[in-house]
């Protein structure tokens, strides 16, 4: 059951240097592939501004950007690792920031599904060993296999 994954949505060692650049890079893949509508990137930016998604997990920061389900045509999970950390505001905070190295894009077209995906991703990012593995990833193929074996959705 891994139709949530698409190799085009696995972007390793990106040089994106801002949240906007991150959302444009991965969000445009969602749009080009028809998984999300043309407003998707703007939706990600607006949502992050109002409800930030940076999560401190101990060693590295993880961000879980998403939009309202209405922007998404086909549910997908994207992964982006960053060459240099990018500051995200911490979930539930106005001003506190966290340096993020790993971004999981939660692109769900249904609220219930979004909850299940979030629950799964939350379990994973709480495992230090999994995060270490993510940071070691060199190829999209490796990343796909790691996600496929861990995302039991």
């Amino acid at each position: 059951m891994n139709n949530y994954l698409d190799k085009g949505l696995i972007l390793l060692n990106s040089s994106a240097d801002s949240t906007a650049a991150i959302f444009e890079e991965i969000g445009s893949v969602m749009i080009t592939k028809g998984y999300a509508n043309s407003e998707y990137v703007e939706g990600l930016k607006a949502r992050e501004k109002e409800f930030p998604t940076g999560v401190p997990t101990g060693v590295i920061g993880v961000a879980l950007p998403h939009t309202d389900a209405s922007y998404v045509n086909e549910s997908k999970i994207g992964l982006m690792t960053l060459k240099e950390p990018v500051s995200f505001r911490i979930m539930g905070s106005d001003s506190d920031e966290i340096e993020v190295k790993v971004v999981f894009l939660l692109g769900c077209s249904d609220g219930e599904e979004h909850i299940q995906v979030l629950q799964k991703i939350v379990e994973l990012v709480q495992q230090q060993a999994f995060l270490d593995q993510l940071l070691q990833l060199q190829t999209v193929e490796e990343a796909y296999q790691l996600l496929e074996s861990n995302l039991d959705l």
């Binding site: 949502r47 109002e50 409800f51 998403h66 389900a69 539930g92 609220g111 909850i115 979030l118």
Partner: peptide
């Protein structure tokens, strides 16, 4: 309570 949808609050509530 969570911000936008009910996702993070569902995870926390469980």
């Amino acid at each position: 309570a969570c911000g936008g949808a009910v996702a993070t609050s569902t995870v926390a509530a469980n």
